[in-house]
Structures are given as C-alpha cells and as structure tokens.
Computed example of a mutant assay.
Amino acid sequence: MPQLNPSPWLFIMITSWFALSLIFQPKTLSFTSTNPPINKTSAATKNHPWTWPWS
C-alpha cells in the first residue's frame, strides 16, 4: 500500500514545517498591530438580581 510509505510525503512535510517556522513565522510576527490594545482600568459593573414574575 503506497499510503504507508513515508518517503514521498515525510520530506515534504518536514521541509514545509521548517519553512513555516523559520521563514514565514518571524516575518508575520514582526508586523505591528494597527490597533494596539490599551491598558484601561475596567470599571466594576454592578449586577442587579433578576426578579422573575412567577416566583
């Protein structure tokens, strides 16, 4: 069965992972975000209990 022979696809898979991790990942991580997150203090919200009409 040719599906069990790893020689045709194993080399392609390993080289593609090396290309993704060594070439493309640093290039994509070097981009700066156009909308950086802002460190804001979150306002505490007051929760009101729900009054059920049938209870």
Rank of each mutant, 00 (worst) to 15 (best):
M1Q: 02
M1I: 09
P2V: 08
Q3S: 07
Q3P: 00
Q3M: 11
L4E: 03
P6E: 11
P8T: 00
W9R: 02
W9G: 01
F11H: 02
F11K: 05
M13Q: 09
M13E: 04
I14K: 07
I14A: 15
W17E: 06
W17M: 15
W17F: 10
W17A: 15
F18T: 14
F18V: 15
F18P: 04
F18C: 15
L20E: 08
L20T: 01
L20M: 09
L20A: 15
S21T: 14
L22N: 09
I23W: 10
F24H: 11
Q25F: 07
P26C: 05
P26I: 09
K27T: 02
K27G: 12
T28R: 15
S30A: 15
F31K: 11
F31E: 08
S33H: 06
S33Y: 02
S33C: 02
P36E: 08
P36K: 04
P37E: 08
P37W: 05
I38V: 07
K40T: 07
T41N: 12
T41I: 03
S42R: 10
S42Y: 14
S42Q: 11
A44R: 08
T45D: 02
K46F: 06
K46D: 05
N47M: 09
N47Y: 13
N47E: 12
H48E: 14
H48V: 14
W50Y: 08
W52S: 10
P53A: 09
P53T: 10
P53G: 04
W54G: 04
S55Q: 15
S55R: 13
